[in-house]
Amino acid sequence: MTAVLDLRALSVDLPLGGFLTRARLPILCDVSLSVGRGESVALVGESGSGKTTLARAVMGLTPISGGSVFFEGQRVDGDLARLRRNAAMMFQDATASLSPRLTVGYLVTEPFRIHGLPLPDPAATARDLLARVGLPPAIARRYPHELSGGQARRVGVARALALDPRLVVADEPTAGLDVSVQAEVLNLMHDLRAGMGLAYLVITHNLALVRHVADRVVVLYLGRVVEEGPTARIFAAPAHPYTASLIAAEPKPDPRRRRADLAIRGEVPSVLRRPAGCEFHTRCPLVRDLCRSTPPDLVPVGDGRQARCHFADQRQDKQGERHAVDHR
């Protein structure tokens, strides 16, 4: 599959602040991932894992400290015009991402003006874009504060689609929406992907959303990839204890299906004081002595997956045995 987006050992360090220190916060560490044409990749992890920082770094909104960003095979350096012409971002707070001083009609057609593209009939273009996301033409005359959460989200989608991008970076696309509206937005994203061949990089902590929209999953912990692979295989048999704990934490109506033995303990460590060895060992329910002293590498574990765990292969063997027993 041809990669639309290819990140290679991407790192982001942010200044800690203050006049007397040059210390920097290592937010992302050597993150590599790719998104193919028409593919949907989900980036998951707890709050503070670096998901939004990665999205902003991809779009050039946060400077990178190391590594490279490639878009359609070409390295993205200082000139971001081509990337932003062919890639768009849906921000987490849909209403806040829309200027309160501009009408919806102006907002959804603004990308044409920003990139100096011809716009013979702005009103007709606005109507077409709004219709594409299921909104009536009258919405074009409203201001952002007059929209519901679901309407603001759809306006954000229309604005993102204005220039027919090849990639959409969606940061928490269903955040703050009612369940019924979430379903509408997800169905809309699915239909647009099928109709336009869009590639998605979806940033979320909602694993139910991941199951619905993602072909592959990339799991971040403290700004580092700890597991990556096809969605169905990762949910069926996670190779990293952190991934298993995230999946086990999903709300389940049947208490007998809850896995208390996989519960994540404690708080996320500070990026200023990263734990030695495996960075997850301070919270891992399966920690061993090796984990406390030696950092694991991201290695293949079969079925097109990778995991950063010393004992990933053993976990896979045990899960395979359990799966065989369950199906006897």
Rank of each mutant, 00 (worst) to 15 (best):
A194M: 04
V185G: 04
T109K: 02
P100L: 08
G18H: 11
S270Y: 08
K252M: 09
R84G: 04
R315T: 12
S99L: 03
P63E: 11
P100D: 07
V169T: 08
G195C: 00
L83H: 01
K252C: 09
H310Q: 06
V179S: 00
R22Q: 13
L20R: 15
T243L: 08
A162M: 14
L192I: 03
E250C: 13
P63T: 11
R37T: 12
F19H: 11
I114V: 15
L83M: 02
P144A: 12
A57H: 11
Q319N: 02
L186V: 14
V225W: 01
A249D: 04
F280K: 07
V35M: 08
A199N: 03
R292N: 01
C291W: 13
V168G: 06
L102I: 03
L5Y: 09
L192M: 04
A123E: 14
T109W: 07
G78A: 12
G67S: 07
E279Y: 09
H115Q: 08
D297P: 03
L54E: 06
V301F: 05
G266D: 06
F91I: 11
T125R: 14
M196A: 07
V210N: 09
L83A: 09
L207D: 05
R258G: 08
L188E: 00
L161S: 10
A260E: 15
M196Y: 07
E72L: 15
A88L: 15
R224C: 02
A214N: 03
E172Q: 01
F112C: 04
K252R: 14
V104K: 05
H323T: 13
R159M: 14
G223Q: 02
S245Y: 03
A94W: 00
L83N: 05
L272D: 09
F19V: 14
I27G: 09
I203Q: 03
Q182K: 10
A276E: 13
A244T: 08
A158R: 11
I234E: 02
R283H: 06
R56K: 15
Y242L: 10
A183H: 02
D191C: 05
L98K: 03
I203T: 01
Q92W: 00
R292E: 07
R37L: 10
R141P: 00
G266Y: 08
